[in-house]
């Protein structure tokens, strides 16, 4: 990092304030769409902090994966389950919120004292890696090869699992009505009208 110390501290302050503010917005705002957009703000500011930490490849991956994919995925989920429902009031909910806030503050105090009290063995002698992308690639294809391959298998399993979980129900053969036109491309799943009928019947 060849920025001046003052520039680094100022940008750290701005990014940190932005991150904490948007994170509080994600948790506290009443409208879920606003929190989804603020979540993208959290991801962008964390990516800036990665750049301050000399992690340029990770910053780019953060922008690509989180801002580009996860935020859009969450927005799609909000649009798909867009239900303006009034939550029924539950007894003791306020007390639970206050207790949770107290516990979270306590956890933060504990972590803060731990961070400040630990004598970190800072490594100031060895020179930093110039090109982190090359270094990461060497790690991935030498000593972290097995986790790397397992991660690709995990992504495949997550993709298949998400498709299976999110598609509509299968129907048994006996219930398939004859009048539905079935081509080679027809999926063996319940048509939309049948699905809505059965969910009406369940009520």
């Amino acid at each position: 990092m060849n920025l001046a110390e003052g520039v680094q501290i100022v940008s750290f302050g701005i990014l940190g304030l932005m991150m904490i503010g948007t994170a509080l917005g994600v948790v506290l705002l009443p409208k879920i769409v606003h929190s989804a957009f603020l979540l993208a703000g959290v991801f962008v500011s964390i990516s800036g902090l990665y750049i301050l930490l000399n992690a340029d490849f990770v910053a780019a991956a953060q922008i690509l994966v989180y801002v580009g994919a996860v935020s859009v995925l969450i927005l799609f989920a909000i649009m798909l389950v867009n239900k303006q429902e009034e939550y029924a009031e539950l007894p003791g909910r306020k007390i639970r919120k206050i207790a949770t806030a107290v516990v979270c503050f306590g956890l933060f105090a504990l972590l803060g004292t731990m961070v400040l009290a630990t004598p970190w063995s800072l490594d100031t002698t060895s020179i930093a890696v110039e090109d982190t992308t090359v270094a990461l690639g060497e790690h991935f294809f030498s000593d972290y090869l097995l986790p790397f391959e397992l991660a690709s298998v995990l992504l495949l399993m997550a993709m298949v699992g998400a498709i299976i979980l999110a598609r509509r129900d299968l129907i048994p053969e006996s219930l398939v009505s004859k009048d539905t036109v079935s081509t080679k491309l027809t999926l063996p799943e319940r048509p939309r009208e049948l699905a809505s009928l059965s969910s009406d019947r369940d009520k």
Binding site: F57, I127, L136, H139, A166
Partner: peptide
């Protein structure tokens, strides 16, 4: 800083988080 193992783990956590988000939303 000499061999950036923390960043390797960061990339793995990003991968697992993406998979978790997809399955969780499904």
């Amino acid at each position: 800083p000499a061999n950036i193992r923390g960043q390797v783990f960061t990339v793995f956590v990003i991968t697992v988080a993406a998979a978790e988000a997809a399955v969780g939303l499904a």
